[in-house]
């Protein structure tokens, strides 16, 4: 049952399309979520059995923070991941 429908607009400088889509993928079995990019904002249509819109936005914020952090820490992250994988492969 996807009987509750909510439509909201969120500022794309706070919630990027990438973060919203990543969050939507986590709710794939609970809700139908459609994200439409508009000028300066993203339009979100949610159809779900319960009220999950707040949870969805929390998750989108989590994803946005992760995306921002990945940009900031990409160098050190890459070094750590590469080192761990190469060591496990037995390569120096």
């Amino acid at each position: 049952m996807r009987n509750k429908k909510i439509t909201e607009e969120v500022d794309s400088s706070l919630y990027s399309g990438e973060a919203l889509n990543l969050a939507a993928s986590i709710f794939y079995d609970e809700a139908e979520i459609k994200i439409t990019a508009k000028s300066g904002y993203n339009k979100i249509d949610v159809g779900a059995a319960g009220n999950i819109f707040g949870e969805f936005l929390n998750e989108a914020l989590n994803q946005q923070c992760r995306i921002d952090l990945a940009k900031k820490n990409s160098n050190i992250s890459r070094i750590i991941v590469t080192r761990a994988l190469l060591s496990a492969l037995g390569e120096k």
Binding site: N62, C65, R66, L69, A70, N73, I76, S77, I80, V81
Partner: peptide
């Protein structure tokens, strides 16, 4: 995904 440098 378990690299804490990428966990918000």
């Amino acid at each position: 995904s378990s690299n804490l440098e990428q966990q918000p």
